[in-house]
Design a protein around this nucleic acid. Structure first.
Lengths: 212, 212
DNA sequence: GTTTCCCTCAGTCTTTTGGTCGAGATGTTT
DNA sequence: AAACATCTCGACCAAAAGACTGAGGGAAAC
């Protein structure tokens, strides 16, 4: 029996392209499409596909959240994260959410088909780049590399939207020092910008998210 | 009877300074100190001060959250936000959370005493700068100035930590265009940086905060 | 048709951000 | 004493971010 696939992506172009790719393989069958995470979860519930191809960046509900929802509710459905951006946070988020694979959208049709079949069989399938990211971190397994007390303070202020200069004033130190701290924070958290660091701080509960 | 005051600030220096200032006025009496928001809420519950002087930027629990908690539970306790940074989000956050006043830390001792007495009497007391910010916004009362569809898309990606270049790639448009959108978003939201915009997006529920 | 709004993009400019390297001061551990 | 971590700050540099102005095209409303 063919592997039944659900495509979740907000770009109809991508969905069509995937349909084309996958239709070339008689062992694969696209049984549904969704244009956002919420829709994806509902369709997965209804169609019970073997594999979900999940874009990570989508409006309404992002792919990581949707992946987590699907895996929690339908553990027999495997999810492959299929995204255009190779970003640390996304990779780890997707894997943590229960994705069995993480592939970039520039993957060759052949490789993609092979990955889907592997996923249906429960085998992990990562793109080389994603695998590299993972191993790099796995070598430092349990460590988001602890931040120092001062760094946590800086991160807290940063996550309130303060600029380096304002953080410096608040802490009574030089702006240069703040920049050093911020650099170290980004490096330790494995993120690329202060905005990502702020998001990390919120996710990890370091700063409270005031109710809207 | 003297006005009973609870000081909540993470800097012991500030707490000491305030004690000094306030002890000069026989009508004022500091009955407690807390070094973070959580502690502040607990002490307010126990001591039932007339007025709480609340710093907004603190570890563990920030002042806005603490203010909201106190006002919800103990409506008879007035809270004055006392902070070193004059920042739009903080001002509105504090006022929304139920603070009766918003003063900068460079306020003169005299003015501070007067403000505390006014607050104890239930009268609103704002620093001139904060008042200016408020009136500027109040003139555009109910309008966070709605974002366009495209701007919401950009904000969504931005709130996932993407850089302008990545957003451009994701949306299939030029980086310059993204910068235009971001500029307009910042302007409409009344914030000063993309990080603040990302925080706004999370607070307003535009993007989901994945469980840690 | 005209106006208005939105999306698109260009150019120019300043400010901010972030990386890298080095270095002094302090305090702690071994 | 020596090694180590932390905090502080400096200089230099490249990249990103953001403000500002202007402008063309398309779509919808008047």
């Amino acid at each position: 029996m063919a592997v039944q696939i659900l495509i979740v992506d907000d770009h109809s172009v991508v969905r069509q392209g995937l349909r084309m790719f996958l239709s070339l393989d008689p062992d694969l069958q696209v049984i549904g499409e969704a244009s956002n995470g919420d829709e994806g979860v509902q369709l997965a519930r209804k169609l019970r596909p073997h594999v979900v191809l999940m874009d990570l960046l989508m409006p309404v509900m992002d792919g990581v959240t949707a992946t987590a929802a699907i895996r929690r509710e339908l553990p027999e459905v495997e999810v492959i994260a299929l995204t255009s951006v190779l970003e640390d946070a996304s990779v780890f988020g997707a894997i943590r959410a229960g994705a069995i694979g993480y592939l970039l959208k520039d993957t060759e049709a052949e490789d993609l088909c092979r990955a889907i079949k592997s996923a249906a069989a429960g085998q992990v399938q990562l793109s080389p780049q994603a695998a590299a990211l993972l191993t790099r971190e796995v070598r430092i397994p349990e460590s988001p590399e602890k931040l120092t007390q001062r760094e946590i303070e800086v991160l807290g202020l940063l996550a309130h939207g303060l600029a380096n200069k304002e953080i410096a004033r608040e802490l009574g130190i030089g702006e240069k020092t703040v920049k050093t701290h911020v650099s170290n924070i980004l490096s330790k958290l494995g993120v690329l910008s202060r905005t990502q660091a702020a998001l990390y701080a919120i996710q990890s509960g370091l700063v409270a998210v005031p109710a809207a």
